[in-house]
């Protein structure tokens, strides 16, 4: 049962991810990305990472993708003629290099999988799920407190930076 669910979700994720980079219209790309992220969130549910799955649904499939779609609708989209940036030879080279990296990754996965001390997986009941989320928050606010604070500071910096960036006049290739 779990295996079947994994294969269905994996097929969804792969097809939608491929559609993101193949489809010509960027709005369709964004919508396929939403579908891919939702499938990935269900895969997180399958891996019993309930809090992460919910955050994935809210933050990625909700907030980030709405940001993408709003910016896309801000632009005046015309039909793109050629969506790929390079010619046939260079494009083939790029795909070959990506394929080489994939092969290396799969090869290293195949040969390193025996090194891990895998725990026997367990199915959490409702109590266990609550315990897991509780443990997660305790770790976040004790062991990783400094990283959490630094992340907050980084978000403040980003907010200021984006506002400053959107107000620039002149700069690159200023004509007037």
């Amino acid at each position: 049962m779990e295996g079947l669910l994994f294969y269905i979700l994996a097929a969804f994720i792969l097809v939608f991810s491929l559609a993101v980079i193949v489809v010509a219209n960027p709005i369709f790309s964004a919508l396929f990305l939403v579908l891919s992220m939702i499938s990935l969130a269900f895969m997180f549910f399958l891996l019993q990472a309930y809090f992460i799955a919910t955050v994935q649904l809210i933050v990625y499939a909700g907030a980030v993708m709405v940001l993408f779609l709003m910016v896309l609708m801000l632009f005046d989209l015309k039909k793109e003629i050629d969506i790929f940036s390079s010619g046939q030879r260079l494009g083939g080279l790029k795909i070959a290099s990506a394929g080489l990296l994939t092969g290396l990754l799969l090869w290293s996965i195949h040969y390193s999988i025996g090194l891990f001390q895998l725990q026997p997986e367990k199915v959490l009941d409702a109590q266990g799920q609550m315990e897991q989320t509780k443990t997660l928050s305790v770790i976040l606010f004790t062991k990783y407190l400094f990283a959490f604070e630094a992340l907050g500071f980084l978000l403040l910096l980003i907010a200021i930076g984006v506002v400053a960036l959107s107000r620039i006049k002149g700069g690159t290739h200023a004509r007037d």
């Binding site: 792969l14 991810s17 993101v20 980079i21 960027p26 896309l72 793109e80 050629d82 790929f84 940036s85």
Partner: peptide, 24 residues
Amino acid sequence: IFSIGMIGVMMRKNLIVILMSIEL
């Protein structure tokens, strides 16, 4: 999925789609 995203970053022209591939 990582390889698909990397191909998208290298091959696409549109900046927004490149950002989406980075998300992938």
